[in-house]
């Protein structure tokens, strides 16, 4: 819509016919220049991370952060994965990676399942106090986590799950519930209600309808939920650092400990390799899911 046209100006030039002659206009050029600069801004940090992770420390000290490595080495990657140090522990970022995986799998499955169940009950069944429950749930999605944290720590300590795998998984379920419920509630509410009514008439009970009819129909929204939860939980730092305990620190926490540790010489190449490794899982999800990711964002943008 921004393009303008230029016309043959000479009098009695060709009789206009067929497509308008177009010349490259300033607006169009400006558009692509803007897009190119924007793309540069978003790509540059990733480029810098990648080239840095392939350089030797000697080359990094020269200070040409944007230059390509003169002799690329994957040594920093191996070191980052296998032997990067947090304080005195030198097990590499792989420790955090496997911790994150172990946290991720139960958290994603359970939070989606509970969210689906709650969304189903709230959207298709008449439950007294449903609106109130949902309102408070929504509120929970918006309030700063700092409000909940200390009492949760106390509760966890009392029941003995503070600093354990159970503790961190429960935390992800708790704070994933609002978004998951919202997602499934809106999804089930958008399905034709006749379907549900027919199942009721056929004598289906609450759980029968859920497991036999609703869950099998939920594939699209489960994909969206998976994208949101996998990236969200993988990227979590706050809950990991507080609730997971020393043995289960997720990858983000371990990464920060490695990079921002004050001991020893800073190995920027190893740090960048570790950083990219940490970003890898959500990036793979992002590139594979494509438009679904955007759909997830739109759904997560909390529209009523």
């Amino acid at each position: 819509m921004l393009q303008a046209t230029s016309r043959a100006t000479a009098a009695n030039a060709v009789e206009p016919s067929g497509p308008r002659p177009r010349s490259v206009t300033a607006g169009r050029v400006g558009l692509y220049v803007f897009l190119a600069f924007a793309a540069l801004f978003f790509l540059l940090p990733m480029y810098v991370m990648i080239v840095t992770s392939l350089k030797t420390m000697g080359e990094i000290r020269i200070g040409n952060i944007f230059s390509l490595p003169t002799e690329a080495t994957i040594e920093p990657w191996i070191q980052a994965w296998n032997s990067a140090c947090t304080g005195l522990n030198c097990g590499g970022i792989k420790v955090g990676f496997w911790n994150s995986v172990r946290i991720l799998i139960p958290s994603v499955i359970l939070s989606i399942f509970i969210g689906a169940l709650t969304g189903y009950a709230l959207s298709l069944w008449r439950v007294r106090g449903a609106n109130l429950l949902f309102a408070v749930l929504l509120l929970g999605a918006f309030l700063p986590y700092q409000v909940f944290i200390y009492p949760l720590v106390r509760i966890y300590s009392t029941i003995g799950i503070y600093g354990t795998m159970t503790g961190i998984v429960v935390t992800h379920i708790i704070f994933g519930l609002p978004l998951m419920t919202l997602l499934f509630r809106n999804y089930y509410a958008s399905l034709p209600i006749e379907l549900f009514k027919a199942a009721r008439v056929d004598g289906g009970g609450f759980f029968q309808i859920f497991f036999r009819l609703m869950l099998p129909m939920s594939t699209p929204i489960v994909i969206v939920a998976c994208i949101l939860q996998v990236t969200g939980i993988w990227n979590d730092f706050l809950f990991g650092v507080i609730f997971a305990g020393r043995e289960n620190l997720p990858m983000t926490v371990q990464l920060n400990n490695i990079v921002n540790s004050t001991q020893g010489e800073k190995l920027y190449n190893v740090n960048m390799a570790a950083t990219i490794l940490t970003a890898l899982v959500p990036l793979v999800v992002y590139f594979i899911s494509g438009r679904w990711f955007v759909r997830g964002i739109a759904a997560g943008a909390v529209k009523g």
Binding site: M46, V48, W234, L255, T275, T278, P282, L283, V285
Partner: peptide, 10 residues
């Protein structure tokens, strides 16, 4: 898609 930690460190 990436975490704030990664963004911050980059």
């Amino acid at each position: 898609a990436m975490s704030f930690i990664v963004t911050g460190l980059a």
